[in-house]
């Protein structure tokens, strides 16, 4: 499959904008959430919304380091669109009585650490790493979460909103995979050595220490909520299939690395990986609230209110 025309894509993105006011948040259907579903769904939505928000920050970093004006503008839009998804998901939570007027979902300790890491280092993260990592998270976590949500929630408004979100996501993935392929250009060994150099950066190592447990705990949360493990494998396969659809795509060493990591992350039987990561999860959950870093300014921009 040939890469998409990014110039046309930018125009398309501009023409397909939507806003929270396009929906009637008071429309009937909110009561379709069962009492049994409610507490799990609340945790689930909070996780989902935070992933979107963290993704938004990733796009903001990409908008800074993108190699062309066109990509820079596309990522600027994607940054805002991910924020829109987080806002819309908060609006759904509000509709379902999961949030008070001025309340935001509380991020877990793991999330707080990832947020702090992003605040400090996101803008210094190599473009190639972020440009591969974000599509992977979008296909696997985001994709799996949304699919699961639509299978279990009957509120029609939820379906309407996610139809829009999914349209956006498909454009994000279109661009994401195209950019991943672009990174496969040039000699393989140089890209590989460059990647190794980047991975030895202590900031990246610190990133792995907060990112691995987050991913793991999200995976476990999903399974605990009743999602079949099978589905996670499938989404991982999807990432592998699309990311590796061309020889150039397969030559991107970041793709190879992240795919490899994703595969062992979903497979709980790999104790060699999961044991230390589980320990990190347990450890981060023990950090007292007061020791967790305060939230950065970009988090304060979240809102469930369609108008301001």
């Amino acid at each position: 499959m040939a890469s998409i025309d990014l110039e046309k894509m930018r125009q398309k993105i501009k023409c397909t904008q939507w806003a929270l006011v396009d929906f009637d948040w008071e429309s009937p259907g909110a009561d379709k959430i069962t009492a049994e579903q409610w507490p799990k769904l609340k945790t689930f939505m909070a996780d989902l919304m935070w992933i979107e928000h963290v993704g938004a920050r990733g796009f903001a970093a990409l908008a800074k380091s993108a190699p062309t004006d066109n990509l820079r503008e596309i990522y600027t839009y994607f940054h805002a669109e991910e924020q829109r998804h987080a806002n819309a998901e908060m609006a759904l939570m509000k509709r379902w009585g999961m949030l008070d007027e001025n309340e935001s979902p509380v991020p877990s300790a793991n999330l707080r650490l990832v947020i702090e890491w992003l605040e400090r280092y996101a803008d210094d993260t190599p473009f190639n790493l972020l440009a591969t990592l974000i599509p992977m998270l979008e296909v696997t976590l985001d994709g799996a979460l949304c699919k699961y949500l639509l299978e279990t929630v009957e509120d029609p408004l939820c379906h309407e909103v996610f139809a829009k979100i999914n349209d956006d996501e498909s454009r994000h993935l279109g661009v994401g995979f195209s950019v991943m392929e672009m990174q496969g250009k040039g000699p393989h060994y140089i890209a590989f050595i460059e990647m190794l150099g980047r991975l030895l950066d202590p900031r990246m190592m610190a990133g792995a220490l907060v990112y691995f447990p987050l991913l793991s705990s999200m995976r476990d949360n999903l399974i605990a909520m009743g999602m079949q493990e099978e589905k996670l494998y499938k989404t991982m396969d999807k990432f592998k299939k699309i990311g590796g659809r061309t020889a150039q795509g397969r030559r991107n060493p970041w793709f190879q690395l992240l795919h490899y990591h994703g595969t062992i992350m979903v497979d709980r039987s790999n104790h060699f990986y999961h044991m230390p990561v589980d320990m990190l999860v347990a450890l981060s959950n023990k950090i007292p609230q007061r020791l967790l870093p305060s939230q950065p300014g970009w988090v304060a921009e979240l809102t469930h209110k369609p108008t301001a």
Binding site: Q17, T76, Y77, A80, N87, P306, T307, A308
Partner: peptide
Amino acid sequence: TWPIAKMSEKGIRCVEGIEHQ
């Protein structure tokens, strides 16, 4: 700093999905 998506009757809609009135 969100990109502006469009203007509406009451204000400015940005790409983050909020209509600022």
